[in-house]
Amino acid sequence: ARCQGVVCAMKEAFGFIERGDVVKEIFFHYSEFKGDLETLQPGDDVEFTIKDRNGKEVATDVRLLPQGTVI
């Protein structure tokens, strides 16, 4: 199932997405972002798939959504 959220933090090689369905942040590695990383910034709406890696939830297949998609 695809989830939606808003990019809330960006570091050197990874970032965090504030999920739209639950009050929780989820980790994503930049290699999982399908698009131009140069244009990705905090506040952007994205959709993603949640996978379990070593007992921790991570966002994979992260894709940009049109602004205003995530309420």
Rank of each mutant, 00 (worst) to 15 (best):
G20S: 12
G15T: 00
F27T: 13
L64Q: 06
L65P: 01
F28G: 01
D44T: 08
D21W: 03
D21V: 07
K34Q: 13
K34I: 06
K34E: 13
T60N: 05
V22I: 13
T49Y: 11
G68L: 07
E25Y: 07
R2A: 06
G35D: 10
F27V: 14
D52G: 12
D36C: 10
H29R: 06
R2S: 09
K56L: 09
D36H: 08
K34F: 06
A9L: 06
G43S: 02
G15M: 03
E38V: 08
A13M: 09
V58I: 10
V6D: 01
K51V: 10
D45G: 14
Y30A: 05
V6P: 00
I17R: 01
M10A: 01
P42Y: 11
G68M: 05
D36P: 09
E57F: 08
K51A: 11
K24Q: 06
G15L: 00
V58L: 07
I17T: 01
T49K: 08
D44A: 10
E18S: 07
R19H: 10
R2V: 12
F14M: 07
D52F: 07
L64K: 15
G55T: 03
E38N: 12
D61Y: 03
V46R: 01
C3P: 03
D44I: 08
F16H: 09
F48N: 00
A59L: 00
C8H: 15
Q41F: 05
F48G: 01
I26P: 02
Y30C: 05
A1L: 15
A13C: 09
E18W: 15
A1V: 14
D61C: 03
E18N: 15
L65V: 15
E25Q: 09
K34T: 10
G35V: 02
R53S: 11
D44V: 12
V46S: 02
I17W: 03
D36M: 07
K24A: 09
V22E: 06
A9P: 02
R63G: 04
E57M: 09
P42R: 10
K11C: 03
D36R: 13
E12A: 14
F16C: 06
I50L: 11
V22R: 11
A59V: 03
R63W: 07
E25P: 11
K11H: 14
T49E: 10
V46I: 03
K51Q: 12
R53F: 15
T69R: 11
M10L: 15
T69F: 05
K34W: 04
V6K: 14
S31I: 04
I71K: 14
K56C: 13
L40F: 02
F48R: 00
S31H: 11
Y30L: 08
E32H: 04
A9G: 05
D52Q: 11
G35K: 00
E57C: 09
R53E: 13
E12Y: 09
L40G: 02
E25T: 13
F14A: 05
E12N: 11
Y30E: 02
V58S: 08
E18G: 04
A13E: 12
D61Q: 04
T49C: 11
F28E: 02
K11T: 06
F28S: 01
T69H: 03
R19K: 08
K24N: 06
L65A: 13
G68T: 07
F48V: 02
S31W: 04
S31P: 04
L37V: 13
D45F: 07
F27N: 05
S31T: 12
R2G: 09
T49L: 10
M10I: 06
E25V: 09
H29V: 05
I71C: 09
K51D: 12
T69N: 10
T69E: 14
E12K: 11
P42G: 04
V22Q: 09
G35T: 03
G35S: 04
L65T: 14
L64A: 05
T39V: 12
G5K: 00
E25W: 07
G5T: 03
T69M: 10
F16Q: 05
C8R: 15
V22S: 14
A9Q: 14
F28A: 01
I71W: 08
Y30G: 04
I17V: 04
V6H: 12
V23W: 07
Q4I: 14
K24I: 04
P42T: 13
V22P: 13
V7R: 01
T49G: 06
C3N: 15
F33R: 02
S31D: 10
G68Q: 13
V23I: 12
A1N: 13
I71P: 14
I50N: 02
V23R: 11
R53N: 15
I71A: 12
G20M: 09
V62H: 02
F16D: 02
D45A: 12
A9M: 04
G15F: 01
F33L: 03
L40I: 04
V62P: 01
E57I: 06
D61A: 04
G5R: 01
G15C: 01
